[in-house]
């Protein structure tokens, strides 16, 4: 078996490797190259050095987007994980209809981001119409709209991960704790949470990277309105690249910066997840 695996190794890896090269490595390298050039279409680039990177900071759009994204990520990561964990606790109690509820909570995750955005724009605008305003009236509304949308979409998914984690906590441990006279709060603090730590790291990683890379929902819900004040980084890159003639290179440079920022944020998490895996 070992031998035949070695023999057929290229056959199995090659297709994926080719796909990975075409769809990821080549565009990635091309993208970095293009960030140092000025171009209209990707085939006619002129080298301009670091000019694009300097032009990023000419207007405050990118920094605004970065700050907005950071705030959004902080709020939504905390709220998603707290709600998802509470739901998971609730739905592992063996209540009636648990499976039905799990399915329902998971469902929003199956809908695409653009569609979600359009659904929520209807709901939120319908609600805000009572006060004669819309979601794009004030950046605050857009911000909380996005947080609500993101929560609605991701809580179900994270909940499933937490449920799996909680269910793998051995009953014997909990029973032993009960016999020792531990309260349910104590069991949660000293047994359940430490035991589901791997799930928590996974969920944190998923929510942080999702929050930073959010695009569809942002585009559909506010499209950056009013005045680009609710544009997150991915949307800002998109509007710079496609919305402004002569700024394609700048958009590309922003994308490279964006990649570096996201990599810096998620690397420690990948590493810690690895460590946990080794331990267990």
């Amino acid at each position: 078996m070992e031998k035949s695996l070695k023999k057929y190794f290229p056959v199995f890896v090659l297709p994926t490797l080719i796909a990975f090269t075409i769809a990821f490595i080549v565009p990635f390298i091309l993208g970095i190259f293009l960030s140092f050039t000025e171009f209209t279409t990707v085939t006619d680039a002129k080298w301009v050095g670091l000019k694009n990177y300097l032009r990023i900071f000419e207007d405050g759009d990118f920094l605004n987007a970065l700050w907005f994204t950071v705030r959004f990520a902080l709020v939504s990561v905390i709220s998603i994980n707290v709600f998802a964990f509470l739901l998971a606790l609730l739905l592992t109690r063996g209540l009636k209809g648990t499976n039905l509820f799990r399915t329902i909570f998971f469902m929003p995750n199956l809908i695409g981001g653009i569609v979600l955005g359009y659904i929520w724009i209807l709901i939120l605008n319908g609600l805000l119409a009572h006060w004669g305003v819309t979601i794009t009236y004030d950046p605050k509304y857009g911000f909380w709209g996005l947080v609500i949308l993101m929560n609605w979409q991701l809580i179900g998914y994270m909940m499933i991960i937490y449920i799996a984690g909680i269910q793998s906590v051995p009953d014997s441990l909990i029973e032993a704790a009960k016999i020792d006279g531990a309260t349910s709060g104590r069991i949660l603090r000293s047994i359940t949470i430490p035991m589901v730590m791997p799930s928590i790291t996974i969920c944190m990683f998923l929510t942080v990277s999702n929050a930073f890379k959010l695009f569809d929902q942002n585009l559909a819900l506010t499209a950056g309105a009013p005045s680009n004040k609710t544009a997150m980084m991915a949307l800002d890159i998109y509007t710079t690249f496609y919305g402004r003639v002569g700024w394609e290179g700048v958009g590309q440079a922003k994308a490279v910066l964006f990649f570096i920022i996201v990599a810096i944020i998620s690397l420690p998490q990948v590493l810690t997840t690895r460590n946990k895996e080794v331990e267990s």
């Binding site: 305003v133 009236y137 004030d138 009013p226 005045s227 402004r244 003639v245």
Partner: peptide, 20 residues
């Protein structure tokens, strides 16, 4: 001069219309 000019103009109009 550009689409961006028009967009900034439009954004300002929106804020004006909303009384901000």
């Amino acid at each position: 001069p550009s689409e961006e000019f028009k967009n900034k103009f439009g954004d300002a109009l929106l804020e004006y219309a909303q009384g901000q």
